[in-house]
Amino acid sequence: MSNLQVSVYRYNPETDSAPYMQEFQVDTKGRDVMVLDVLHMMKEQDSGLAFRRSCREGVCGSDGMNMNGKNGLACITPLSDVVKNNKLTLRPLPGLPVIRDMVVDMGLFYKQYERIQPYLQNDTPAPAIERLQSPEERDKLDGLYECILCACCSTSCPSFWWNPEKFVGPAGLLQSYRFLADSRDTATRERLSDLEDPFSVFRCRGIMNCVAVCPKGLNPTRAIGKIREMLLADAT
């Protein structure tokens, strides 16, 4: 089998006036390795290639990137899932400023996360043991709390590309609903009133790119729908 042809986005602010695509030939010895393995092989050829990685098992969310046009985590994406005609094109997550090569500035993404007050709020005194929660109440958090903040969803969302300052984006809204849905959280009203403007939630057009790319199989669109229902119920 011939070498894998990889085309990678390169940009070093110190030396490059503009970004460019660099071609690599990678010998995977015919194995169906992960895209992250391919990045490591390329880094052995050129130590200057910059990308983030940590857990290499899909739970830390460091290596979200755009692989042959689709966002995902490099560490849990086997070549067989993305490579077409022996070619792989790797670009940084779309829509965020590039710091270097595959490394984007996540500041805006984190800002929207922080905006929704991503922590449990409960105005009653804490008991001496845990707060009780039934298994059914706890089940409501499944599909929400597992988010790893990889930004694959928000950076594939046209509404977020268009209004990253004002639209919270799928990741932030998924987390917002994670707390709205938590039987232990008492700040529902405040949370909802922070979201009732025309942009924060209502810029979601139900395009569902977020659902298509989420590497954890989560469904931000459904969570956003639930928030809308709560906002509408709250308004009546």
Binding site: Y119, I129, E130, R131, L132, Q133, P135, R138
Partner: peptide, 22 residues
């Protein structure tokens, strides 16, 4: 136990028993 209950109070989504405990 104190440290674990604090985590729960902070919001850690522990799985639950039927009686609502962790």
């Amino acid at each position: 136990p104190k440290a674990v209950f604090e985590l729960e109070h902070m919001g850690l989504p522990f799985s639950r028993l039927d009686n609502g405990r962790i």
